[in-house]
């Protein structure tokens, strides 16, 4: 069973994504901010990470670069799920070696097919 970590400061969104992924048979771990996310990555070693960008204290970019700085997570698929549409954000995410940039709102199918793709 694949483990997916979701990091977002919006609790009700976190709940909705979790509900869907669980229905699809993934093990879901949630974190409500970047620090929480970092902790949970090290403790549970997720197969895929979904993160928000705009978060208090540490934003998603910083989180991504930290994840990539850990040897065993250099290739762990990361999906950015952000309300931000600015090009530079997408570019920055790519530079930091995020695997995919999804813009809110996206559909459940879009998200699920992306996850499936990245995990295979």
């Amino acid at each position: 069973m694949k483990k997916i970590l979701i990091i977002d400061d919006t609790l009700h969104l976190l709940e909705e994504i979790s509900d869907i992924l669980r229905m699809e048979g993934y093990e879901v771990i949630t974190a409500y901010d970047a620090f929480d996310g970092m902790r949970k990555i090290s403790t549970s070693n997720p197969h895929l990470i979904i993160t928000d960008i705009l978060m208090p204290e540490m934003d998603g970019f910083e989180l991504i670069s930290k994840i990539r700085s850990v040897d065993k997570h250099q290739t762990t698929p990361i999906i950015v799920l952000s309300a931000q549409a600015a090009k530079e954000n997408m570019q920055k995410a790519e530079e930091l070696k995020a695997n995919l940039y999804l813009r809110k709102p996206c559909t459940a199918d879009e998200l699920l097919s992306s996850i499936e793709k990245l995990l295979n």
Binding site: T10, L13, I17, D19, I20, A83, K104, P105, T107, A108
Partner: peptide, 8 residues
């Protein structure tokens, strides 16, 4: 953000 929640 709320739209995402609604969509999901």
């Amino acid at each position: 953000t709320p739209l995402s929640t609604i969509t999901f």
